[in-house]
């Protein structure tokens, strides 16, 4: 059992949770993830480790499916049945010069830990966070505190630049030399945004989020095409060279269980409604 030390909502459907898991916390590095299994009947889902503090790790997630909705309903003092990790390869890190970190939506949650690692490695770090609107911006203060420069972009212009994070990235590239870029967000956002750096030949890394089961290289559920070769995101990634990733395969595979996900969520919501006060009773 792994205790939830803190659980709070950051934005609409976006939640953050600190979980005590010393075996993960003591070894976790930027870019790695954990697998959660909430209870005996739960599925195994990967979540990026977005911060570490002592024996605890932080995950930030969006409550969109059954498991994440259930997870969001858990409070401090509750527990998670299984936490495995840290999994995956840590972010490729070195002293490159200027690094730009671009986050889209809840994917932005994964930037601060990479920003800190990049800063510690002696890089100039520029952060860009894009969101649909101002209320969905997360980890802004953390990013401001670690980045040398920081920009916001919203699709509706409610805060920061009116437009996409990709546009801000292009502006930064027009102004100064950029040596390394990370882009983390929804698959379509990573696909589109990474086009901005392709022509300039700037090494650009994306963190892929395919469906996983074991997360340790034993099933191949998370296979992705990178440079024409099949790779397992759980052990060969989750970070890959954006310009070599076949995002269409990734998106196709992410849709594989859409009908089942819908069924599972509807069943869960019906169950929650049937319970008194909307509280979940297992």
């Amino acid at each position: 059992m792994f205790y939830i030390e803190k659980s709070e909502q950051l934005a609409d459907k976006v939640h953050q949770m600190w979980v005590r898991a010393p075996h993960v916390a003591h070894h976790a590095l930027a870019g790695q993830f954990v697998i959660f299994r909430i209870d005996e009947k739960g599925e195994r889902i990967p979540l990026t480790i977005s911060a570490v503090d002592g024996d605890a790790i932080r995950v930030i997630f969006m409550a969109i499916g059954k498991t994440t909705t259930h997870l969001a309903s858990l409070k401090s003092g509750d527990s998670i049945r299984d936490v495995a990790g840290p999994l995956g390869k840590p972010s490729e890190m070195g002293t490159y010069g200027t690094c730009v970190l671009v986050g889209g939506g809840v994917g932005s949650a994964n930037l601060p830990i990479i920003a800190r690692a990049a800063k510690a490695a002696g890089n100039r770090v520029i952060g860009i966070i894009g969101a649909r609107n101002a209320s969905l911006i997360i980890v802004e203060n953390e990013m401001r505190s670690v980045c040398d420069e920081f920009f916001l972009a919203t699709d509706d212009g409610s805060r920061g630049f009116h437009g996409f994070a990709a546009d801000v990235l292009k502006q930064v590239m027009a102004k100064e030399r950029v040596d390394r870029v990370w882009i983390i967000g929804p698959a379509i956002m990573m696909k589109v945004t990474s086009e901005a750096t392709r022509a300039a030949g700037i090494r650009t890394l994306v963190s892929l989020n395919p469906i996983m089961v074991d997360g340790t290289g034993m099933c191949g559920s998370c296979r992705v095409m990178v440079d024409g070769m099949t790779k397992f995101a759980c052990v060969d990634g989750p970070e890959f060279d954006a310009h070599k990733v076949d995002f269409n395969v990734l998106m196709q595979r992410l849709r594989m269980y859409q009908p089942e996900e819908k069924e599972s969520l509807e069943r869960y919501q019906a169950h929650v409604c049937a319970c008194r006060g909307g509280e979940h009773h297992g």
């Binding site: 191949g220 594989m256 089942e260």
Partner: peptide, 29 residues
Amino acid sequence: NLPGVYSANEFLTRVNLMHADRFPVYDTP
């Protein structure tokens, strides 16, 4: 890589370890 293609390990793990045969009572499809 088309959806519907499994390694035996994945297919068996989903059913044997994760009880996908009892989805949606168990969460793994």
